[in-house]
Design a protein around this nucleic acid. Sequence first.
DNA 1: CGGATCGTTGACAGGTATCAATGCTGGTGG
DNA 2: CCACCAGCATTGATACCTGTCAACGATCCG
Lengths: 231, 231
Amino acid sequence: MELTSIKQAWDGAEKCRQCHIRKFALFADLQEDDFMQLHLPITDLELQTGDSLYKENEAPKFVYTVRTGLVKLVHFLPNGNYRIIRLLWPGDLAGIEALHGITYLHQAITLQNTAVCKIPIENIEQLNRKSPRLYKQSIAHWQRVQKDTDIWLAELSVGSSKKRVANLLLYLNQRSSNDYFYLPGREDMGALLAITTETASRIIAEFKRLRYLQTEHQGAYINKNKLKQIS
Amino acid sequence: MELTSIKQAWDGAEKCRQCHIRKFALFADLQEDDFMQLHLPITDLELQTGDSLYKENEAPKFVYTVRTGLVKLVHFLPNGNYRIIRLLWPGDLAGIEALHGITYLHQAITLQNTAVCKIPIENIEQLNRKSPRLYKQSIAHWQRVQKDTDIWLAELSVGSSKKRVANLLLYLNQRSSNDYFYLPGREDMGALLAITTETASRIIAEFKRLRYLQTEHQGAYINKNKLKQIS
DNA sequence: CGGATCGTTGACAGGTATCAATGCTGGTGG
DNA sequence: CCACCAGCATTGATACCTGTCAACGATCCG
């Protein structure tokens, strides 16, 4: 192993240990000696809106931790349409299916400028062999994801379009740290809720007219009470 | 520990070791010495259609392996309606969220006469502490579930009702070992696909008239080619 | 035989997709 | 600096689909 690589690896591990997002992510309860095992380079990536982390069915080599920004997991349908399967927020993992030998299940595309940690899977597999702590986090991760997905299925895929949009806005608002939150484009909204772009647009426009929603740049503010009445 | 209990435990472990479904389930790569750890009783249960394994938000005490039959995971909506989040087939696990301290996420109800293994969670937690092999299976489980759910989201929750019903029939057929497969009641079908009972009924009736589908008792045969054209 | 449960069908209103046209906005190059 | 363009959002008209409410038929079981 060459010097630069060693330096980089150490930097990665050091950064990782200090990262404020770590406690939410895969390495949450790694300990000092675990970090000593991390010999492979973890790299930071700064991505721009629309960049792709990986594609569906691609041979998987990395797992990603979202540090800032927002990522959509997309599944393309045979007819060219697509469906957004899930959103990834800071602290979430992308591509963790890579750890277990199967191909990526979706395409991961950023919705905003997004910072991620890119972790080679060999790195994690090494760690897995030596420390059971990673397993626990892995399971915790899957479980969280599953719970989210279930709620999605139960609440965002049923009822009238208006209810779905209202629920989506409340969900996005709730995930945001302040009142202002990221508002997806109408096409993405459709792909999230299984409705058409036009329907999404009509409903958003209506909410704006009713003052349930104010938009600004790429984001929005909402009147939670009014929207909860609808949902 | 009393004698009867010891006997029962040993029986359970012995049965489990010999079970033909085991290779698909949680204990897939347990080994001889792992089995020696199983001191708590694993019990067989024979359930009838409509029985409930556990309820949403109930304090979790058991994990179940489905050995034969079919189970639905149900989430009830505030308005009294319900949505079926997932189906569990032989080899699948029910209530595994119990392992990680959270409450059950759904109500599990049998759709047919169903045999399950009922495993106390302490049992598994013991094992977890001593053997990392269970973790791997746990993760594999979550991953399989997630993949299923994703397909569900991508294919069974979009498109016209007719497409959804066609896709559901193809899915049910594909999961069956022979051509004949279990056909859910119309209400359950609606809850699976997020459509109304009446719509489900109309479409099934139409498929029958067109000879895309023949029903018999609780089950059915389909013309796959015709249904694939629709989907 | 009667009753309960589930499936089927009809009529209708309202909702949503579809097709098409028109605004709006941010970025690019002249 | 401005005109233009590309991409997105909005809006309209319409047909179709689906939910809703209601009635009726089929089947099973006591």
